Amino acid sequence: MIFNAIDQHEARSVLVKEMRMLRRMLAIFASVVSTVSANAQNASNDQASATALDDEIVVVGSQEKQATKHQRAAEYVRSVSQAPVSGQYARWHDPICPRVTGLDATAATLVETRIRQVATAAGMPTNVTSCRPNLVVIFTLDGDTTLKRLEQQRFAYPRSISPEERRAIRVAKQPVRWWTDTDIEGADGEPLTASPNPGLGALDLPANQDTKYSSTYSSSMITTKVRAVIPAAVVIVDVTTASGKKLTSVSDYLAFMVFGRARAVTGIRTPTIARLFDASCPGCTALTDADRAYLAGLYRGPANRPANTTRAALIGGIVADR
């Protein structure tokens, strides 16, 4: 009996322990389930929040950035370019031969060297030996008086400068005044003639004393039979009004203007040497990447292209270079 009592007591003790252990395991299991459920709920809430946030975020992709670059490049080209000549962008074809007057020999050499450097970088031909000047740069203390003297000597303007353009040059009070001679020649550089090719027979074509004819034959719808050229240019630098600008900056400025047949601009978003005298762009003191790309694009492609084709190529070149 004593042994039976002990056995029953031990059995009850074991049972109590097992029940306690079971309750403890159930409590742990319930805690784990609760934690997992809470984590799952939190994850679901996080996913919903991420989805809502994703709906509000707009990612600016490369396509939109490229469109912005293209828009700014188009604004730049449109702003700095002068009106086309006979539907084309005019450019130089003869080797550049600059002659600088009004400065001492050292300063004049510096300007001439810088002009040749800009031309070479753009892919233009240059002439460093003795040559006949086709780009005359005059530094003077009085731009108006110098211009009047040139006009009196009938040296100032070539025939291609219209009376309206001459008046604009006279009244301009710019620190740097320039003008380029322009002409039209055959696509391969041959001069135009005053009469049609005799091989074409008798033609009753509308003409006047300024009418010229080309003997170039082509069936292309992309190229033209002629090209617009710049044979010469004159620049007057008024030292008094250009005071405060470095000689290298003025050299870059005048080189860009006459090589690109460009014009001074203000207020556009793209930095350019064409804004050298624009007070809103104090950092525009040297050729920019856009300026270099513009000149390189102008002189890289074939010359006998319509203006819209050349313009598109210039814009594309500037976008690719930036």
Score class of each variant (00 low, 15 high):
24 R>M: 15
307 A>W: 13
302 P>F: 08
185 E>D: 03
129 T>V: 05
319 V>D: 01
153 Q>C: 09
253 Y>I: 03
114 R>A: 03
223 T>C: 00
156 A>C: 08
299 Y>V: 11
235 V>F: 00
101 T>N: 00
151 E>V: 13
160 S>T: 03
22 L>D: 03
143 G>Q: 06
197 N>S: 07
21 M>E: 15
78 R>K: 13
23 R>G: 02
274 A>Q: 02
157 Y>M: 05
147 L>M: 11
92 W>R: 14
174 Q>G: 08
125 P>E: 07
37 S>K: 08
128 V>L: 08
153 Q>Y: 11
262 A>E: 12
122 A>V: 00
217 Y>I: 15
107 A>H: 08
217 Y>T: 13
8 Q>W: 10
290 A>T: 01
28 I>L: 12
28 I>E: 11
322 R>D: 02
285 T>E: 11
106 T>N: 12
27 A>P: 07
175 P>M: 14
64 E>C: 06
162 S>L: 05
282 P>K: 07
185 E>L: 06
36 V>C: 11
307 A>F: 14
49 S>H: 05
43 A>S: 08
274 A>T: 01
19 M>W: 15
40 A>E: 13
237 V>W: 08
235 V>T: 02
201 G>W: 10
227 R>V: 11
68 T>P: 03
24 R>Q: 13
172 A>G: 11
125 P>Q: 11
86 S>L: 09
188 D>R: 12
197 N>F: 02
270 T>V: 10
122 A>R: 06
276 L>T: 00
90 A>H: 02
168 A>W: 05
306 P>D: 09
236 I>E: 00
293 A>K: 04
21 M>G: 14
72 R>D: 04
109 T>A: 00
297 G>F: 02
300 R>T: 14
255 A>Q: 06
144 D>N: 12
59 V>D: 05
9 H>T: 14
243 S>M: 11
132 R>C: 01
260 G>V: 02
76 Y>N: 05
313 A>H: 07
262 A>D: 12
45 N>Q: 15
147 L>Y: 06
204 D>E: 06
56 E>I: 15
55 D>N: 14
266 T>H: 13
292 R>W: 13
22 L>T: 07
129 T>P: 01
164 E>T: 13
90 A>I: 07
143 G>R: 05
123 G>E: 05
245 K>I: 10
5 A>D: 06
118 V>T: 03
184 I>N: 08
284 C>K: 01
118 V>M: 07
108 A>P: 00
183 D>L: 01
30 A>Y: 05
52 A>V: 15
4 N>R: 15
278 D>C: 10
21 M>L: 15
170 R>N: 08
297 G>T: 08
166 R>I: 02
98 P>H: 12
130 S>G: 00
185 E>N: 02
144 D>A: 10
201 G>F: 10
92 W>Y: 14
173 K>E: 10
86 S>E: 15
274 A>S: 09
123 G>P: 04
277 F>R: 04
8 Q>G: 03
